[in-house]
């Protein structure tokens, strides 16, 4: 008789805190339930406090895996992008978040892992292995990554050039990259404010997916992916 296809959780054998910070973290029933409640709460807040509107939802691929990329000016950005997703894509969406901020201590790690479903990216010391793990999981586990390729929140509202890390995740794979533009996030929750400011409008425009199956998986290809995604995101920005 053939062996069954038994695949233990990728995070099996990690201590609880290590597990929360692990790039191999896989959600169980508790994570799915808390994540689902959190998303519903965030959606209700964004609708009520910021009149959140989504344009171009039909551009989202029918099912994971895919990568959402957007301009980054606020902590609301990742929340807004994950609130725009539905069904399996919403459950499998991981925001790639700065480890030094979102996984700085156990309390932050619990919130980031169980509610936001974030995966840590370590600024300045994200290793190639980490990116390779994320690249493999994207396809194998059918995930959605929410990624801000500028690398940090813009303090001025001007979008910075995209980093090539995005290319390392998708170059040469069939995974589509969906460009998005978030308008109003900097006013609604600027980087220098401690909490969001209700009443400021927030909207999301989703563009047509980009494909990088033929992009070479090397430095030149990664740069090309980043440049193409950056151009597509800029193309969604409102005139003026």
């Amino acid at each position: 008789m053939d062996r069954w296809d038994l695949r233990p959780a990728r995070d099996l054998g990690l201590r609880p805190m290590e597990r929360l910070r692990s790039l191999g973290r896989e959600a169980g029933l508790v994570s799915l339930a808390t994540g689902g409640l959190w998303r519903r709460g965030v959606r209700a807040w964004l609708r009520a406090a910021h009149g959140f509107r989504v344009e171009g939802r039909e551009n989202l691929p029918a099912s994971p895996p895919f990568v959402l990329v957007a301009n980054h000016a606020s902590h609301l950005d990742a929340l807004a992008l994950s609130a725009a997703l539905r069904g399996a894509a919403a459950r499998r969406a991981h925001a790639l978040a700065a480890g030094d901020l979102f996984f700085a201590n156990p309390a932050a790690s619990i919130l980031s892992a169980y509610a936001i479903n974030a995966l840590p990216v370590w600024r300045g010391r994200s290793r190639r292995d980490d990116l390779m793990t994320m690249r493999a999981r994207l396809v194998e586990d059918g995930l959605v990554y929410i990624l801000f390729p500028e690398g940090t929140r813009s303090r001025t509202g001007t979008m910075a050039p995209f980093q090539p890390g995005l290319g390392m995740l998708v170059a040469g794979t069939p995974v589509p990259v969906v460009p998005c533009w978030l308008e109003g996030a900097r006013d609604a929750w600027p980087a220098e404010a401690r909490a969001p400011r209700p009443g400021r409008p927030l909207s999301l425009r989703i563009g047509a997916p980009l494909h990088f199956e033929d992009a070479p998986d090397g430095r030149a290809g990664w740069q090309a992916v980043a440049a193409a995604a950056e151009a597509a995101v800029r193309g969604l920005a409102p005139e003026g």
Binding site: D5, L6, R7, P8, A9, D11, L12, E26, G28, L29, L32
Partner: peptide, 13 residues
């Protein structure tokens, strides 16, 4: 469930 991978079957789990 985490060791056998059954946890990925949301409904069944």
């Amino acid at each position: 469930a985490r060791a056998t991978g059954l946890f990925r079957e949301r409904l069944l789990s």
